[in-house]
């Protein structure tokens, strides 16, 4: 058991403990984070959506991005993901997202705001 003997000790422990409740904090602040949904269901999982999900999850660690699973996004080539900007309703869908494509989506679209070939604007949630 770590002993807290000073304010610094407390601050350090808080930093470490944030991991335990990280996804809960994300859920609380979800409207101020970029949301990346990865479509699952049978078809998605067969196309490898689970691996994409895990990959994206690790890749955005520490960034103001929350990664969530969702049901089949729509009639898109799977694995399909959809990105929602903070405070907006409109989503941008990306289909056929491999691990490499996922990296591109993150670095180009999410972080820099640049469009990517093949992205589809969708107004549904």
């Amino acid at each position: 058991m770590p002993r807290i003997n000073s304010v610094e000790d407390l601050k350090k422990l808080k930093e470490q403990a944030l991991d335990k409740i990280a996804v809960r904090l994300q859920g609380e602040d979800i409207d101020s984070l970029t949301q990346i949904y990865v479509g699952m269901d049978e078809s998605g999982m067969q196309a490898g959506a689970k691996e994409v999900f895990h990959h994206i999850w690790s890749a955005v660690s520490g960034k103001p991005v929350v990664v969530l699973q969702t049901a089949k996004i729509g009639d898109f080539k799977e694995p399909a993901i959809k990105v929602v900007r903070p405070g907006q309703h409109a989503a941008t869908v990306f289909e056929g997202v491999t691990i490499d494509k996922a990296n591109e989506v993150i670095s180009e679209f999410v972080e820099k705001g640049n469009p990517i070939e093949g992205m589809i604007a969708a107004t549904h949630e």
Partner: peptide, 8 residues
């Protein structure tokens, strides 16, 4: 359904 397949 929800945790594995993302379906609420």
């Amino acid at each position: 359904r929800h945790i594995i397949r993302g379906h609420k």
